[in-house]
Design a protein around this nucleic acid. Structure first.
Lengths: 190, 190, 190, 190
DNA sequence: GATGAATGAGGTTTCATTCAT
DNA sequence: GATGAATGAAACCTCATTCAT
């Protein structure tokens, strides 16, 4: 009658799960949602059956990938906030979120189509990030590094938009850098 | 002097084609590339066969949708370029493209496709837009209104990204204006 | 209440019908049953609608093609029987039938699959041919030009088999001639 | 020294593969190439997916059927060639091939394909048969038992044609024997 | 637990046939 | 009568998911 608690996995099972998550992240982001479960399993060096034992659904795998990425971002965000001054922390965090968000757009739509606005696990992780972003934004604004009239919604929209811009630009690092310069410059007070 | 017209096309056939293009635009836009041809046909009130008579492939339909959009933007862009001074023309055009694209997620893909290599039919339409944008960008840069190191690919990426940002923000006009301020500000030389 | 009697067609309609039959014969024999009705119509220079006005069904068209060919064979057979001596008439007829039978195999199966052993119109034409063959065979045997133990069924089987052999040989006329030599030689009394 | 074995294949999978090949042979043979993959799968008692797992394409299935047949004939041909003198070996082999093929219309297509250019997998099997037949034919011609002007293509065509003739004749053994007499007689030098 | 063969609903595309123009 | 656009059943093939080994 206790709440479902994930059993501690056997060592090899845990290794498989981690590996699947890793490979799935790579495949989803580089090749889109069209990758088949079979391909992901093969790339991870396991059978499809194993994939489905760990993630009951392709959608569940996708969700796990997103949660994992959000958690990483959340952790690094927290870390960044602690390590640098308010301005640097904010701008570094902006870049970090953009870099970690490739493909998120498509993923979100897929999850939405599957029926929920956002799964509970996703909610939790993104709530942490939002909280962190709120703090960083306020700090940077107090430090005079960011225009004071900008709210969290606009910040998130700008993060999403910048991600989109960077995504479609492809692999030219100089051009990519110029995108960041434009947006980060625009964020500063006039 | 008239454009090459592949065939005269009967009145009802033309109506069906237009309707299919309309519906396909809406469906692709709101539900992504996963919509089935059957659904598009049903929504347009025709049989699948009719869809495939007009567009021999699902991909061809998508392409037609994108071309159609690009042509609209191309026309309005040309108009704007003729009406104002270089700086105003550039900034007005930036807003125009974003406004025309807002609420139409899939259109950003079209813009994205215009930035990458694309199908031959797309080439033509996107070439017109690129030409126009190139001219506007160069004019604005000559006038000292835009940072000189910005290239066309970055401009397109920023248009796409800003569209995305505005789109996700919803209906708050003040917040929306702040997004524009950030990006347009960032575009100015430091 | 009179039996259905094909009305005399208007001049252009008759021309269309004849042309369709011609083209269909060529297309079916050179490209198999997979040719589409659309292609046949286009090759004949008419719309599909016209094809279906003349032949209510693809199968009906196929049947008409076969009847037409059988009638030609029947006519030429009759002619041959009247013009030459018994031996020549028989051997010439053998070649004639083989030459006119390309693709018949596949056609017959298609008609069979469509539900009848052989349509009445086909029955009639092939009955005429059989009758003619019976006469020619008997004549040639009386003249000592063909082994006397051969019956009509074997003759027909040999015609079918030789057709098959010639068909698969392709376009080498010398090899084709050798096939005929083998079979016709084998038909002579030892 | 064992032949290249692509994969060991589980017991039940092998059974399914064999069963599919069997059923497909029967269906193609009796009903032509028009049978649907769905029907073949149903007749074999498996889902379509299974069919396509074993044979990635309908065409691949047909090819496998033909290869299978050709291999059987190749084996028996080799055996016969080793057992008798040149003339007997040749004529026995002719009868053997025809007997093995009788009642199996689609097999004649395989032989036909062997005479024409075919897919790579077919090449191998048909190469063995061709080699064997070439040897038998040359031997019989050297021994003066077969007309010297006959080439391999004509021989194959005659095998195909004789198969067809015998097949269409039905079950009268005397008539069948007469077909053989005609063809084999015709093969002897004049 | 792991594997990969089996499943079958569902997707794209073709084509014989109908019917408005 | 002629035309060709429209129709939709049906074909081939894919892939998320299940289950025997």
């Amino acid at each position: 009658m206790t709440a479902a608690r994930p059993r501690p996995l056997r060592a090899d099972a845990a290794r498989n799960r981690a590996r699947l998550l890793d490979i799935a992240t790579r495949e989803f982001t580089t090749r889109g949602l069209a990758v088949t479960t079979e391909e992901i399993a093969r790339a991870a060096g396991v059978g499809v059956g194993t994939l489905f034992r760990h993630f009951p659904t392709k959608e569940a795998l996708l969700e796990a990938v997103m949660v994992c990425r959000l958690e990483t971002v959340a952790a690094r965000t927290t870390q960044l906030a602690a390590e640098s001054g308010p301005a640097d922390a904010f701008f570094d965090c902006f870049r970090l979120v953009v870099d970690q968000s490739a493909g998120k757009d498509e993923f979100t739509r897929a999850l939405a189509a599957a029926g929920m606005d956002a799964h509970s696990a996703l909610r939790e992780s993104s709530a942490v990030i939002k909280e962190r972003l709120t703090g960083l934004l306020a700090g940077a604004q107090r430090a005079g590094a960011v225009r004071p009239d900008l709210g969290l919604p606009e910040l998130i929209a700008l993060l999403t938009g910048t991600t989109k811009a960077v995504e479609q630009l492809g692999a030219d690092p100089a051009a990519r850098e110029r995108i960041f310069e434009v947006v980060l410059d625009g964020l500063r007070p006039r």
